[in-house]
Amino acid sequence: MSRAEATRQDTKGRRPIGLLLVAVPVFLVLSLIVWPVALSVFDTLTVETPSGVTLSLDAYRFFFSDSFSLRNLWMTVQVAAICTALLLAISLPIALYLRFSTSRLTGYIQALALFPLFVPSILLAYALIRTLGPNGTVDILLSAVGLPKLASPYLTIWGPIIGLVWDNLPLTLLIVLAGLGNVSRASIDAARDVGANRVQLLRYIILPRIRSTLLVAASFVILGLFSAFTLPYLLGPAVPEMMGPFMRRTIIDVDDPLQARTQAVVTFLICAAFAYFYVRSIARTRREQSS
């Protein structure tokens, strides 16, 4: 018997055990992710009539004609767009520095940029209120140097933006850094050699190579923002509110599970394309890792 055959026989004998071992987590995924989502999609698309279940778009018609829902959705889109732009604009220079500098500062900068990973977002919310809220640190410092108070971002759209940028910086940075890892130093040197300056390096050599990475980073951020709850709830305005707090209020306070599900499915749909890029890239890194 060849070795390959032997292993095959070996694994054949184990088949039921393998299935048995993965059964519970797979069952969890099916019953707590796939099933609820499928059920929500189904239920929001149908109504029960005496003659049976029929297709109906009423739930969505309500969502998209309700100005309150639309305002909340619009605010979420705005926050997502601003946060994504800010996060990419902040993490790209940091990542470039970390990747290509040999200075000793890189250690400090990396530690600092990854620090938010170690701060739970509920604590962050509290810290930001104390810093940016009324009579917070920023106000204190401004009045100490004799400047007038600024309008506090607390309870405006900028509150959640600041918090979400803070919270998402480490992982965005790590995604961009991983992408920059594929840009070799030699290809940068070669471009400088033929006369490219910093801006041209970025534009013609680096950005084209990390375009897909940036897309993945943006997808990650956008998915996170459509499901953000704690920070928008504690730092953001009450009206309009982001989809996270809005969905919670609809199901708990308004007690309208159907609309809450409709809202959830709408966020799924809006995020579908981003989810596709994001999941595809995760699947790819897992596959690379395991091979």
């Binding site: 070799s184 030699a186 070669a190 400088r192 033929v194 006369g195 050599i205």
Partner: peptide
């Protein structure tokens, strides 16, 4: 390097 009159061929050829 971008302002030096030198050209370099790298070991790993470093093509874009």
């Amino acid at each position: 390097p971008e302002r030096r009159p030198t050209g370099m061929v790298f070991q790993s050829h470093a093509l874009w």
